[in-house]
Computed example of a mutant assay.
Amino acid sequence: MDQVETPLAARTPAAAGDRTADNGSAEPSVGELVSRATRQMSQLVREEMQLAQAEMTQKGKRFGIGGGLFGGAGLLAFLGLGALVGAAVAALALALPVWASALIVAGALFALAGVLALAGKKEVGRATPPAPEQAIEGVKADVATIKEKTKR
């Protein structure tokens, strides 16, 4: 579900339209081979760019979610600090039940902030490194295939 996939048929040379030469022979002419290779290369580059764009969009969303979770953790930590200050004031001014309850609330807020911080760290970790890894691997595989085909 997290992976962006390009159909195999769209990545194969047959998808660009293999044809024999118009002169009736089984072997295509050099001009047609060059034309076909140019067409296939431009299609391949377009597909790789689309894959890179989709992958970067997905990673951007993960960074956004992780940043939002970190923001929520920071807000709850700030509220927890306010409650802790309120607990200190209550401890000096009132009897045990008021400040004890304020400490319990502060502890709960800090615990929730910790959970949100861990969730945010996990989301940001899943989005790094900020590079289109699948597209890069696809290009490497395509280059290797082209090198292999040209050696024949």
Rank of each mutant, 00 (worst) to 15 (best):
M1H: 10
V4A: 10
T6S: 12
L8W: 15
A9M: 11
A9L: 11
A10K: 13
R11I: 09
R11L: 15
P13H: 12
A16M: 11
G17T: 03
G17Q: 05
D18M: 13
R19M: 15
R19Y: 12
R19L: 15
T20V: 15
N23A: 15
G24S: 14
S25I: 08
P28R: 06
V30Y: 13
G31T: 09
E32T: 08
E32A: 14
L33Y: 09
V34G: 01
V34S: 12
R36G: 14
A37C: 14
A37G: 15
R39A: 12
Q40S: 11
Q40R: 10
S42L: 10
Q43R: 14
L44I: 03
V45M: 05
V45E: 03
E47R: 07
E47L: 07
E47H: 14
M49L: 11
M49A: 14
Q50A: 11
L51N: 02
L51Q: 04
Q53R: 12
M56Y: 00
Q58H: 11
G60H: 06
R62F: 07
G66M: 02
G68L: 08
G71A: 10
G71C: 02
G72T: 01
G72F: 07
A73D: 00
A73K: 08
A73F: 06
L75F: 09
L76Q: 04
A77L: 03
F78H: 12
F78R: 12
L79N: 01
G80T: 01
G80K: 02
A83L: 01
L84H: 06
L84W: 06
V85G: 04
G86E: 01
G86M: 05
G86F: 05
A87P: 01
A87I: 02
A88M: 09
V89S: 06
V89N: 07
A90R: 04
A90Q: 06
L92V: 05
A93Q: 10
A95L: 07
L96M: 10
P97A: 02
P97V: 02
V98I: 03
W99T: 01
W99M: 07
W99F: 04
A100Y: 05
A102K: 09
A102W: 12
L103F: 11
L103I: 00
L103P: 02
V105M: 08
V105K: 12
G107P: 06
A108H: 02
A108Y: 05
F110V: 00
A113S: 00
A113G: 00
L116C: 01
A117D: 04
L118D: 00
A119F: 06
G120V: 02
E123V: 04
R126K: 13
T128F: 04
P129D: 03
P129A: 02
A131I: 10
P132M: 00
Q134Y: 07
Q134L: 11
A135E: 01
E137P: 03
G138I: 03
V139L: 09
K140W: 14
K140F: 13
A141Y: 09
A144Q: 10
T145D: 15
K147S: 11
K147T: 09
K147G: 09
K149T: 10
